Amino acid sequence: MKQLIIIVTLVTLVPLSAAANYDSEVRLSFPPAYSTLTKVDLEDWKSVTKEFRDNALWNQDTTEIQSCESLYTLPVTTSREGNVSFGGICTIAGSGQKVFICTDRMLGRFEVFPEYQRDLPWIAQTIFDHCWGG
């Protein structure tokens, strides 16, 4: 009986701590935008990276994006169907330089930042200040 209690305790504690850790790393409530910064789902990773590439071309930016290692979304509204702005840490083809890039779906704003921080508040504020689609 004692062993069963220990197993039950471990099973109930592990998911809670893992969820709390995951949640704290990928979500940030961002009151100025009345929104939440979250990591882009893995199944959307390819399409968001393509959107970065397309917006670079549309804005006549010579930045050629090789790949992205971190991608974030900051919806303009709390609705997941509304306008969305994105930001990510990406590698530039050829040079291998890592930069922060942001874009929005509504107006196609596109900005590249050679200097950036891997800090969620910085990422949210940069997307809001430079690529907000609202």
Rank of each mutant, 00 (worst) to 15 (best):
R80C: 12
Q66F: 12
E115V: 15
E51M: 15
V26E: 08
S70M: 12
G87T: 07
I92H: 09
V84R: 04
F110M: 02
P32R: 07
N21G: 10
V11H: 12
I5R: 10
V84F: 07
L71Y: 02
C68I: 06
T103C: 04
M106C: 14
D44H: 11
V84S: 03
L120E: 05
L120P: 01
E25R: 11
T73D: 06
S29V: 10
P31A: 14
I92E: 08
I123Q: 01
D61K: 04
A56I: 06
Q117Y: 09
L13A: 12
P15T: 11
Y34W: 09
L71H: 05
N55V: 00
V8I: 13
L107F: 04
S67F: 10
R80L: 13
L37I: 03
N83S: 11
S95P: 00
V8G: 14
F86P: 00
K50N: 13
R109M: 06
A124W: 00
T12D: 09
S24T: 03
E115L: 13
R27A: 03
P31R: 02
L57F: 05
Q60M: 14
E69F: 14
P114R: 08
Q60C: 06
Q66C: 10
T73I: 10
L107N: 06
W45M: 00
G133N: 05
E115Q: 10
S79N: 15
V76K: 04
I7G: 05
I127Q: 01
F30K: 01
S67L: 11
R105K: 15
I101E: 00
T62L: 14
A33V: 01
I65L: 09
W45K: 03
N83L: 07
F86W: 06
C90H: 01
L42N: 05
R105W: 06
W122A: 05
F52D: 00
T38K: 08
V99S: 05
L42S: 06
L37D: 00
I123D: 00
R27L: 05
Y22Q: 07
V14F: 14
Y116M: 10
V99H: 04
K50S: 11
L28R: 02
W45R: 03
E51P: 06
T63E: 08
I89F: 08
L107Q: 02
E64L: 10
V11A: 15
R118F: 07
D61T: 07
P75K: 03
S47D: 12
T9Y: 10
I127C: 03
S85C: 08
N55Q: 07
L28P: 01
S67E: 15
L16Y: 13
L74R: 02
P32S: 06
A56M: 06
P31L: 04
S70F: 11
G87R: 03
G133T: 08
A20W: 13
K50Y: 08
N83M: 13
R105L: 05
Q60S: 15
A124G: 04
Q66W: 09
E25V: 11
Q3P: 02
T12M: 10
T36C: 04
G108M: 02
K50Q: 15
T103F: 03
S70T: 14
S29G: 12
G133D: 03
L120D: 02
L13W: 11
L71A: 06
L10G: 07
T77Q: 12
T12L: 12
G96C: 06
